[in-house]
Structure formats: C-alpha cells, structure tokens
Amino acid sequence: MDYIHLKDMQFYGYHGVLAAETTLGQRFRANVSLAVDMTKAGETDDLVYTVNYAEVYAICRDIAEGEPFKLIEALVSKIANTILQAYPDKVKGVRVELIKPDPPIQGYYKEVSVEVTRGEYR
C-alpha cells in the first residue's frame, strides 16, 4: 500500500465541552494519512490516478473550522469519514490524528490528541 501524508495542518475552531473552548476557540493541529494505490499515478504522472492533497486539506479545514463539535472524537471521525466518502474508489483507508496543543485543563503536558483509523489502513 502507498500513503499520502498531510502533516501538521493547523486550524482554529470552537470545539469542546468547556465554555472557554466554545467561546474563545482554540488552535488544532491535524495529521492525515491516506492509503492509496499510486502505481498508475507513478507510471503516468497524471493526477487523475491519485488523490489531490489540496482537496483533502480543504476538507479538513472546512470541517475543523466549521460547525463546532463537543468531542474531538466526533470531529476526527467526521474528517475521516468525509475523506473516505469523497474518494471511495481511491482511498482504501485513512488515519486522522487531531491534536489540541492548548486545552484549557490544569496540569503539565505537551498536548492531547485523538486518532482514528478507518478502512483498510496498515
């Protein structure tokens, strides 16, 4: 299997359970990996045989900066499922990690994240 990776995409959204998250918003980072057979794209040098990662970025941005979710588990699932639905014949599997670098909780930590894997992803 071949993979396309979009790493450290950054967005600003209003997702969360706490009032500060839904009022002030916060930064989110995302990493997305797509399982795609790129054999034909590699042989032909033709975009039609692969996935346009600019379009995938736009899907992630529109969801992450769009309608608020209480749980990032719901947000990351929406991103993964939307990508699979957008490319049913090309994307065999997807892994999405969503990172909250500054959640409004007390303690010492670098970040919190949620990751989902959907479809055929190894």
Score class of each variant (00 low, 15 high):
residue 1 M to H: 06
residue 2 D to I: 13
residue 2 D to K: 07
residue 3 Y to S: 03
residue 5 H to C: 15
residue 6 L to Q: 05
residue 6 L to Y: 01
residue 7 K to Q: 13
residue 10 Q to C: 05
residue 10 Q to Y: 07
residue 10 Q to N: 14
residue 12 Y to N: 05
residue 12 Y to M: 08
residue 13 G to S: 02
residue 13 G to D: 03
residue 13 G to E: 02
residue 14 Y to N: 06
residue 16 G to P: 15
residue 16 G to D: 01
residue 16 G to Q: 02
residue 17 V to Q: 04
residue 18 L to G: 10
residue 19 A to S: 10
residue 19 A to W: 00
residue 19 A to H: 11
residue 20 A to I: 10
residue 22 T to F: 05
residue 23 T to G: 09
residue 23 T to Q: 10
residue 24 L to S: 10
residue 25 G to Y: 04
residue 25 G to L: 06
residue 26 Q to I: 01
residue 27 R to Y: 08
residue 27 R to D: 13
residue 27 R to G: 11
residue 27 R to N: 08
residue 28 F to Y: 12
residue 28 F to W: 06
residue 29 R to D: 02
residue 30 A to F: 03
residue 30 A to I: 11
residue 30 A to E: 05
residue 32 V to Q: 01
residue 33 S to M: 08
residue 33 S to G: 04
residue 34 L to Q: 00
residue 34 L to A: 01
residue 36 V to H: 02
residue 36 V to M: 00
residue 38 M to A: 15
residue 41 A to E: 05
residue 42 G to Q: 04
residue 42 G to M: 06
residue 42 G to E: 07
residue 45 D to K: 02
residue 45 D to I: 10
residue 45 D to N: 10
residue 48 V to Q: 12
residue 49 Y to A: 02
residue 51 V to W: 05
residue 51 V to R: 00
residue 53 Y to Q: 04
residue 54 A to Y: 01
residue 55 E to S: 06
residue 58 A to N: 14
residue 59 I to R: 02
residue 59 I to N: 00
residue 59 I to Y: 12
residue 60 C to Q: 01
residue 61 R to D: 12
residue 62 D to L: 06
residue 63 I to P: 14
residue 64 A to S: 14
residue 66 G to F: 00
residue 66 G to E: 01
residue 66 G to I: 06
residue 66 G to K: 07
residue 68 P to C: 07
residue 70 K to I: 14
residue 71 L to C: 08
residue 71 L to S: 02
residue 74 A to R: 13
residue 76 V to S: 10
residue 77 S to P: 14
residue 77 S to H: 12
residue 79 I to F: 03
residue 79 I to N: 03
residue 80 A to D: 06
residue 82 T to V: 14
residue 83 I to M: 06
residue 84 L to N: 06
residue 85 Q to K: 13
residue 85 Q to V: 14
residue 85 Q to S: 15
residue 86 A to N: 09
residue 86 A to M: 09
residue 88 P to T: 11
residue 88 P to G: 07
residue 88 P to M: 09
residue 89 D to T: 15
residue 89 D to P: 07
residue 90 K to N: 08
residue 91 V to F: 14
residue 91 V to D: 03
residue 92 K to C: 12
residue 93 G to C: 11
residue 93 G to H: 08
residue 93 G to T: 12
residue 94 V to C: 05
residue 94 V to F: 07
residue 94 V to R: 02
residue 96 V to T: 08
residue 97 E to R: 13
residue 98 L to N: 00
residue 99 I to A: 00
residue 100 K to A: 00
residue 102 D to I: 04
residue 102 D to E: 13
residue 102 D to R: 07
residue 104 P to C: 01
residue 104 P to H: 02
residue 105 I to W: 07
residue 106 Q to P: 11
residue 106 Q to H: 03
residue 108 Y to P: 15
residue 108 Y to E: 12
residue 110 K to T: 15
residue 110 K to M: 05
residue 110 K to H: 15
residue 112 V to I: 14
residue 112 V to M: 03
residue 113 S to V: 09
residue 113 S to G: 07
residue 114 V to R: 01
residue 114 V to D: 00
residue 115 E to A: 11
residue 115 E to W: 01
residue 117 T to N: 00
residue 121 Y to I: 05
residue 122 R to N: 11
residue 122 R to Q: 09
residue 122 R to G: 11
